[in-house]
């Protein structure tokens, strides 16, 4: 669990995680916003379904992969949280978007 140092000039950002309303501070990455809101794990692995949480917070480990506004596989630590964002926990391996799967067939 994470706590915040006093930040008198912070502006609140409102977003949802799996439909639940959460609050972050402006300037937070999505990954930081979730950790700050007490979300312990943000994805499960494709192979065993084990819970994972961000490890590096600098774009290297890809443990923060998450669905943001309907787009899967976003690096949560590299996307700034915005008002109204709909964030969802990434469960296993997200499939290809339907249109691409139809066109490419592979």
């Amino acid at each position: 669990m994470f706590r915040r140092l006093p930040d008198p000039r912070a502006r609140a950002v409102h977003f949802t995680f799996d439909g639940e309303a959460l609050t972050a501070n402006s300037g937070d990455s999505v990954a930081a916003a979730l950790l700050g809101a007490g979300i312990e794990h943000s994805r499960t692995t494709p192979k065993s379904g084990t819970a994972r949480a961000p490890y590096c917070m600098m774009g290297v480990c890809f443990e923060c992969l998450i669905e943001i506004d309907g787009v899967a596989n976003r690096q949560g630590c590299l996307v700034e949280v915005r008002d109204g964002m709909a964030v969802r926990r990434q469960q296993g391996a997200p499939g290809l978007p339907e249109d691409l799967a139809d066109e490419g067939g592979q």
Binding site: F2, N25, G27, L35, G36, A53, C56, M57, M58
Partner: peptide
């Protein structure tokens, strides 16, 4: 056990402190 939630790199925690003023309880 390094894949358990709650295990991070020190740089990750420092980044959260710098960027968001967040720190581990």
């Amino acid at each position: 056990g390094w894949t358990l939630p709650g295990v991070m790199s020190i740089g990750a925690a420092q980044t959260m402190l710098k960027s968001s003023g967040l720190y581990p309880e």
